[in-house]
Amino acid sequence: MIINDSKLKKKAQFFLFGISFVVYFSILCLSCYLKPAQKGITIAGSTSIQPFADQWAEVFMSRFPEKVVNVQGGGSSAGVQAAITGASQIGMSSRELKPEEKVLTEFIVAWDGLVIIVHPSNPVDNLSLEEVRKIFAGEIISWKEVGGFAKTIHVVTREEGSGTRVAFQEMVMGQRRITKKAIVQDSNGTVREVVANDPYAIGYISLGLVEGRVKAIRLDGLEPSVENIVEKKYRLVRPFILVTNSVPHGIVQDFIQFILSEEGQNLIQKQGLIPARLVKKGQSKEE
């Protein structure tokens, strides 16, 4: 009898578990169909812009607690797609829009310099645009050819589709392809990490992310600095663009206005970005 009892108990327990599982599961499924309460806006896209968007959103929300901004990554192309389909109200792109994407309303919110970086111990500190192109195309394969060690150059690039890579491709490589032998890393941070650890590596990252562990290369003798970019001397400059699929209104409008306000622009200037007003559009295309 006692044994039977405990068996029954076990069965009952099992049943309870089963039932609760089914209930839980159906709630889970149901919740997929329920629309989440509309609370604020979503901004998604370029991982290069994301950290800055996070800051803007943080300050914006502390100012207007009732206006919620969700920041998501995903990459430039995904961000533009999301803005077109309406999955997010604002898309972020760190490359120029393609012709078929021009249906969107664009706002240039900042400018970013692209910097060629090497290891601090590397004696090379100046390269011409042509040399950079040849190094990344795999034609110059030894540092010796550009005045450095007699060592093979380890080219580090970003993955296909990355906004930073697209910008580098357009501004430096032109029609040339980046060598297949290049090491591929999937963020600005990891490129910097690789170059900071490898004396023979070369890579490219955002100006705002350059720090002491890597050395910024002068391009045709020009230091990649905010001053040189503003004075239109340093040419590797790309826009950070926000896109919306209609004329913005409501929170979207407030948020973009905040970003373009002096306060919003000061916020990113501290991080090494160049405020939108300091550079005219189209400058990066001047050659």
């Binding site: 192309s77 797609q81 993955e159 297949k180 032998k181 999937d186």
Partner: peptide
Amino acid sequence: GNATALPRSILDPVRTLTSNIALEMGYVS
């Protein structure tokens, strides 16, 4: 290392099928 070139020695970088998907997934359309 994720290079798309065929490795010539075991000291060359290489990309696997899984990393190919994960690396480029974020941007694609």
